[in-house]
């Protein structure tokens, strides 16, 4: 078959050396392939950057704590630890029940309250207050905390996280914030 005029490689004769047209064709093809790949790169950036930015946006969303009323001061008996329910700092309109959060609230005295996060510091499972034992027990991997939130047993690396609490116009308010994440380094 006579393909000499169709593919440039056949025009390259080992003995005669490449013809000038062939060199021009090769550099033209090199240019065209680089052009095409560069354009593909541009397309990837134009589409990929906004897509990745959209998906990664929650990483950079800083949430300021929001004070949430969890009841009147008189609703809580001194010395008792009860669970209180409040809404997340800035819930999306379609969050439904997932916008709810809970904490363990103890009235220490007339005017002092302590609010413990319900998240075990090991891996975030909801700890339960056992009033008879004065302990918080985790259902997942065996974490146990004393009354003051310090670790009594099991794998938790830290005491229970505490929320800020304040009394405003006779109401107890908990400062709703992010789910506490235990990190290393």
């Amino acid at each position: 078959m006579n393909n000499e005029n169709i593919t440039p490689d056949d025009g390259v004769q080992p003995s005669a050396g490449p013809r000038r047209e062939t060199i021009a064709l090769i550099s033209r093809r090199k240019f065209l392939s680089r052009l095409s790949l560069s354009l593909a790169g541009v397309c990837a950036v134009v589409i990929g950057v906004p897509a990745a930015g959209f998906v990664l946006a929650p990483l950079f969303r800083k949430v300021a704590g929001t004070w949430r009323t969890v009841g009147a001061v008189g609703d809580f008996a001194i010395g008792e630890t009860v669970s209180v329910v409040f809404e997340d700092p800035s819930p999306l309109p379609w969050a439904g029940v997932t916008a709810r959060a809970a904490a363990w609230l103890r009235r220490d005295s007339e005017s002092a309250f302590t609010a413990f996060s319900a998240h075990c510091t090991h891996l975030g499972c909801p700890v339960r207050w056992m009033p008879g034992a004065n302990l918080f027990l985790c259902p997942c991997h065996g974490g146990v905390y004393y009354r003051d939130g310090s670790v009594a047993a099991g794998p938790p690396p830290h005491p229970l996280f505490r929320y800020d609490v304040r009394i405003l116009e006779g109401n107890v308010q908990v400062k709703a914030t992010a789910v506490p994440i235990t990190t290393t380094l």
Partner: peptide, 11 residues
Amino acid sequence: RFILGGSTIGG
């Protein structure tokens, strides 16, 4: 935060 889609479970 990437997994939660923010700082808490939610929408």
